[in-house]
Write a protein that binds this DNA or RNA. Structure first.
Lengths: 140, 140
DNA sequence: CAGTATCCAGCTAGATACTG
DNA sequence: CAGTATCTAGCTGGATACTG
């Protein structure tokens, strides 16, 4: 008879798969990007306050106003993690009171450009998704 | 004096922003795609069992094996929502026992192609992110 | 101005058991 | 084979209060 049970086999392949996921760059990027606020802050820094302009540095309070729904906690937390990942640079100017500005790095800028492809898909095809969703719901 | 308090102003702009988010196609796409399993299932159906082949239909159990870490609950739930959104089609063949296959629709295929741009970025730049992360952590 | 700290509600997803 | 149902732990993120 077998020396491993079906349950053990499943556990083993799950562990292997978890390891695979932990190493998969695409999956890690998705984890990185799929926070509630990352893309909004990225878009803010990448497209300016009007969401259609040029990338530029913005102050903490300016970002807080632009991304109006964000809590202080999440804004700080998200900016810190983006800075840690080299996507955003933080500059402190020792005025009184202090001035802090955030700006996309080259890396952050290149990610922002890539995200625009997603944005493009969303703007072209999300209507189809909604239509399908509506059709599916009414026929149910 | 003002007829609204600062707290009221904040609540108002938050509500407006929430409404804006609810209508933003990009944000909705992100919500859609950022589940833990959506991209994995999309990639499975889009790139075959070896993750490098051609799109093809796959059976429920085949997907369950490919995406080894997924629970039955999440696999079913994710497939159902993808089907609802018109990204995946579900075909039941009344053999005994029943055979069910899932396949990307045209829409799902186009999304899958777009996701590959993200994958591309991840494979080219995630090393930079990790390097930055490591540098940031050691200097702390 | 630009944060930090704490507490807590809600949702996501995993484990487990059962079925046409 | 291809699901459904239930119960629950853990994590994300919001509210609130305080600070250099």
């Amino acid at each position: 008879m077998a020396t491993t049970t079906a349950a053990q086999d499943r556990a083993t392949s799950k562990m292997a798969y978890d390891a695979f996921l932990a190493a998969c760059p695409s999956h890690q990027l998705l984890d990185r990007v799929s926070g509630k606020w990352v893309t909004l802050i990225l878009a803010g820094l990448g497209s300016g306050p009007d969401c259609a302009g040029e990338p530029r540095a913005m102050r903490y309070s300016e970002l807080a106003r632009l991304v109006a729904g964000v809590s202080q906690k999440m804004l700080t937390q998200t900016l810190r993690s983006l800075e840690r990942d080299g996507l955003v640079s933080r500059t402190v100017t020792p005025t009184v009171p202090v001035t802090v500005t955030y700006e996309l790095t080259e890396l952050g800028l290149s990610l922002h450009r890539t995200m625009r492809a997603l944005k493009q898909w969303a703007e072209t095809h999300m209507d189809d998704v909604f239509a399908s969703r509506a059709a599916h719901d009414t026929s149910a």
